[in-house]
Design a protein around this nucleic acid. Structure first.
Length: 620
DNA sequence: GAGTTTGAAACT
DNA sequence: CAGTTTCAAACTC
């Protein structure tokens, strides 16, 4: 029926596209099946035979409906899938279809392995090396281990990296389809586990080369169900960053209920990661949709247009999207050209000449992606063939600045620091701000020189800009909003400082700290900052203004322009955040993770889990 | 398209 | 830590 294996793969994949509503359940189930020991060969054989026997289209259409309904029920039931409740027919269909999908997925993996640029390659490569190459354990035990002990840090980094791409435009819809919890509800990282299980049990390809492959196929469809995400997630077709996004990246509207209840078709912007490849898909959700709330924007063009994509910014709000259009109309021809290139080919590309694309000057490198042919860079080393070099450089940079590759724009409510948890993804983000703030002197924050302006966020207290006229306003922040405001209202500033101190002294907060602070290298934690009032505090990274310091030295309020303040410095950040948090209750999870490198460690991260537990305890 | 301006990143 | 240099994007002509 299918002829060559290639044709079969295509057909299966195409069917998978059409059969998206089935995917989440089926793939989740497949993951479980595989985890339970089913051999890939048997599954593949079974699939192939089944496929040959059946009328694929009829099967898919009818089952899509069934599964769509089932999936909806599952969503309503809190993504707790009970196989017993599924009809036997549905289950049979699921098996059949899921296996087709898997087969197509696996086969395509080899094809997609070649060539196309990918997001998160660095992280994926590292994660791969870390979890696979350096581990001879069985796939299952390996993945389990990675998930439980190391994966948090890996995922954290992946998330960070992903966030840097999705940044403040991250799609909110991803959140809702979180049916990864269908099968593995115990941990936010379980989806990753399942992904690995599926991957490892079906192919020997490295994780990074497989994850997301299916989406490459899926996303070619212009009409997809939202279940795509469920599918990908449940069995690992989502790239890890995507999974992370689901748990809350910057500006992700994480109101899952709104998505679940939305029956409106919406755009889904999919960012696919598959080893050395990357692509984004802009898809239309026709049914059962998680509707984009307010942070959607076509990040990059679909791989339909160009599978070779560059770093992308995603997750822009609808209003921002409109602004972009208006802005585009006003661009000079040159800028328009650049923007056109950005829009038409997916994303921006770099033009580096001297940095070899191995410094943060390079947008591609900074975004965590390899350069592509369409980049105009010279002597570029930011390519897969120099992976080792790239990773080394990245490590060096991160050693210097652990947050170098984290998103520049974060949400006030959901700080995009590498430490996110499943709790955070349930938080609806408020407004975004530039994490480190700008330092503009002449642009008045009215041009794209200004990173705040460029990110379309208002300047915040973290900024040290002069003559700020940021048209995006001032990012709402707790009372002490901006340096300028402080300057104008020193009394208010003092009050807030007092309030912050009072909150810091709250037992609930201080109790969480002692163990965590011990994880932070002493060199980064000057005692004067760690224990300003005789207590131990664990503070997340941040770059908000030194309230306390400013209090004692008002003259520094506005003109704190030291480059060092702009660079992320753990000690400073910690003290700043502490001071900035009037409640003193900013998630303790943050500082846990801040003790971990924002990059997957080269050695097993023994404390990852411990840190998580401590975080949970802190929250309690 | 060339040249200038700008501010982040990197360096000393 | 602060000042300087380098860099590439943004911008102007």
């Amino acid at each position: 029926m299918f002829g060559s294996p290639e044709n079969e793969a295509v057909l299966l994949s195409d069917q998978a596209e059409k059969n998206l509503p089935l995917s989440s359940l089926e793939m989740s189930q497949a993951a479980i099946n595989q985890r339970d020991g089913k051999k890939t060969e048997e599954l593949s054989r079974f699939i192939f035979e089944k496929v040959k026997e059946s009328d694929v289209n009829a099967c898919l259409v009818s089952r899509a409906q069934n599964c769509g309904e089932n999936a909806a029920k599952l969503h309503r039931a809190g993504c707790q899938y009970d196989e017993k409740n599924a009809s036997s027919q549905s289950r049979e269909d699921s098996n059949e279809c899921k296996q087709r999908v898997q087969k197509g997925f696996v086969k395509e993996g080899g094809q997609n392995e070649r060539g196309i640029r990918r997001h998160l390659q660095f992280e994926a490569a590292k994660a791969y090396k870390f979890t696979i190459l350096g581990n001879s354990e069985s796939p299952n035990s390996l993945t389990h281990d990675a998930t439980n002990s190391r994966s948090p840090s890996i995922l954290t980094n992946l998330k960070s990296l992903a966030s840097s791409h999705f940044d403040n435009r991250a799609s909110s819809s991803l959140q809702d389809v979180s049916c990864d919890t269908l099968q593995f509800p115990s941990s936010p990282y379980e989806s990753f586990t399942s992904a690995q299980i599926g991957v490892n049990s079906t192919t020997s390809a490295p994780i990074h080369s497989v994850i997301g492959l299916h989406l490459n196929r899926i996303s070619r469809s212009t009409s997809l169900s939202s279940d795509i995400f469920s599918s990908k997630k449940s069995i690992g077709y989502l790239s890890m960053p995507e999974q992370m996004l689901e748990h809350g990246s910057n500006n992700i509207a994480t109101n899952s209920s709104s998505i679940l209840t939305s029956a409106v078709s919406g755009k889904i912007y999919v960012h696919v990661a598959s080893g050395q490849q990357e692509s984004q898909a802009v898809t239309e959700a026709n049914s059962f949709t998680f509707h984009s709330t307010d942070t959607m924007k076509p990040p990059c063009h679909s791989m339909l247009v160009d599978q070779e994509t560059a770093p992308c910014e995603v997750g822009m709000s609808a209003s921002q999207e409109t602004d972009e259009v208006e802005e585009l109309n006003q661009l000079s021809p040159k800028r328009k050209r650049r923007r056109d290139a950005y829009m038409s080919e997916g994303c921006k590309r770099c033009n580096c000449r001297r940095s070899k694309c191995l410094k943060l000057y390079c947008e591609c490198f900074a975004a965590g992606v390899y350069c592509v042919d369409s980049c105009a860079c010279v002597n570029c080393y930011n390519k897969p063939e120099f992976e080792d070099t790239v990773l080394d450089i990245r490590q060096q940079i991160e050693a210097r600045n652990p947050l170098a590759f984290t998103p520049k724009v974060v949400d006030n409510a959901i700080d995009s620091s590498p430490n996110f948890t499943e709790e955070q993804d349930l938080t609806t983000p408020s407004s975004a701000r530039h994490k480190r703030g700008c330092n503009c002197k002449k642009s008045k924050c009215l041009k794209r020189y200004c990173e705040c302006f460029q990110a379309k966020v208002g300047c915040s207290s973290a900024c040290r800009c002069e003559g700020c006229k940021n048209t995006f306003g001032v990012t709402p922040e707790p009372v002490y909003n901006r340096a300028k405001k402080w300057e104008a209202h020193p009394a208010e500033k003092l009050d807030n400082v007092k309030g912050a101190i009072a909150c810091i002294k709250a037992p609930a907060f201080s109790s969480a700290s002692s163990s965590n602070s011990a994880k932070i290298p002493q060199a980064q934690l000057p005692s004067s900052q760690l224990q300003p009032s005789g207590a131990h505090y664990d503070i997340p990274y941040d770059d908000t203004p030194e309230i306390l310091e400013e209090t004692s030295n008002p003259t520094k309020v506005v003109r704190a322009s030291s480059p060092n303040q702009k660079r992320v410095s753990p000690p400073q950040s910690r003290s700043r955040l502490r001071e900035r948090s009037p409640t003193g209750l900013r998630s303790g999870r943050k500082f846990i993770l801040q003790a971990m490198p924002s990059f997957p460690p080269l050695t097993p991260h023994r404390n990852s889990k411990e840190g998580t537990n401590e975080i949970e305890n802190d929250d309690k």
